[in-house]
């Protein structure tokens, strides 16, 4: 019991520490791809530090929901992260929820984020909320079907069990069903984390924003919490991909000695996935909003093919 609590604390701290790093890495890599220097890998930490020290401006039209939203966004993302295997195949809080709980916890965060966008009465907030809920709703079937394919392979929705099965079969990721499911989940990752071609994380042009539009009125520590929550959510989705499909370096139990090696391998896997994301972001233009459903339909088709190929191969 105390061991499990300790594991949870360690993983929580790792989630807090690694998530800004990944965001910084993606931004820097993207800048390099565009032959810019970029602000440096550590910039997200500096941003957090700065924002937490600042004061806040609360819109006069906002209700208590506006203040509750940052906490919910942060805590749902962090709790989802504790249900995933990170360094070890056994997730610290795996008993409390598997892949369905992760998906629904992220949904809870999104629900309140969208309400927070509507709460201020600004048209931009409503615009962001409307688009976010639309896109996430269309992402959901592709995500679930891909997740089901993975879960059926392990005959469990427990993420620890999924990782354990994957560890047992090192070359499984080249099976057609796994590759198709990976491709589907990759599109889901792009859509859920608001990256090009679905949303542009760097934009501040009001009419094209989705995520940014919802949080336009947030400032100071609240903004920091929401941003941190969004980075953790991105890390959670990336962990879902890397540890379900490339389970290398995952330890069977929890031991401090192997933790450093596991962490090193994990960071390399995350860096590789970040590379894929950056490649997609720099080689594509942002889509028109009404072209996004086609992309998500393609993801759904990929997931359906993955499912069919589970018993063809």
């Amino acid at each position: 019991m105390t061991e499990a609590a300790l594991e949870a604390v360690v993983q929580f701290l790792l989630l807090l520490a690694v998530s800004p790093l990944i965001t910084g890495f993606i931004r820097t890599l993207k800048a390099r791809f565009q032959t810019r220097r970029g602000p440096g890998v550590l910039q997200p930490y500096r941003d957090l530090h700065k924002l937490f020290r600042k004061g806040m401006v609360i819109p006069e039209t906002a209700s208590w929901l506006f203040a509750a939203t940052p906490y919910i966004v942060f805590s749902t993302a962090a709790l989802a992260g504790l249900m995933l295997p990170m360094l070890s195949t056994s997730a610290p809080l795996g008993l409390f929820g598997g892949v369905l709980a992760v998906v629904y916890l992220l949904g809870l965060g999104r629900f309140f984020l969208a309400l927070g966008g509507l709460d201020t009465g600004s048209s931009f907030g409503g615009l962001g909320s409307s688009r976010e809920m639309t896109i996430s709703a269309l992402t959901e079937p592709a995500m679930m079907l891909a997740v089901f394919t993975v879960a059926i392979g392990a005959s469990s929705t427990s993420l620890s069990e999924i990782a354990r099965v994957a560890v047992g079969q090192q070359w499984r990721f080249v099976a057609p069903s796994q590759m198709l499911a990976f491709a589907a989940l990759f599109v889901v990752l792009i859509a859920e984390t608001g990256r090009i071609p679905v949303d542009n994380p760097a934009t501040h042009l009001e009419l094209t924003m989705i995520h940014e539009a919802m949080i336009l009125e947030y400032s100071g520590p609240y903004l920091a919490l929401i941003e941190w929550g969004a980075w953790i959510k991105q890390l959670v989705l990336m962990l879902l991909l890397v540890n379900s499909f490339w389970p290398y370096g995952l330890q069977a139990g929890w031991s401090l000695a192997d933790a450093a090696a596991s962490l090193g391998i994990l960071l390399m896997k995350l860096a590789a996935l970040s590379g894929c994301i950056v490649l997609v972001e720099t080689t594509n233009a942002k889509m028109r909003l009404f072209r996004v459903p086609e992309l998500l339909a393609a993801a759904f088709t990929l997931a359906a093919l993955a499912l069919v190929s589970t018993f063809l191969f």
Partner: peptide
């Protein structure tokens, strides 16, 4: 080997 979920623990941990 099926999945598990604990709404009570989720509620407590979210708080």
């Amino acid at each position: 080997r099926g999945g598990t979920v604990s709404p009570a623990a989720i509620a407590g941990l979210l708080l």
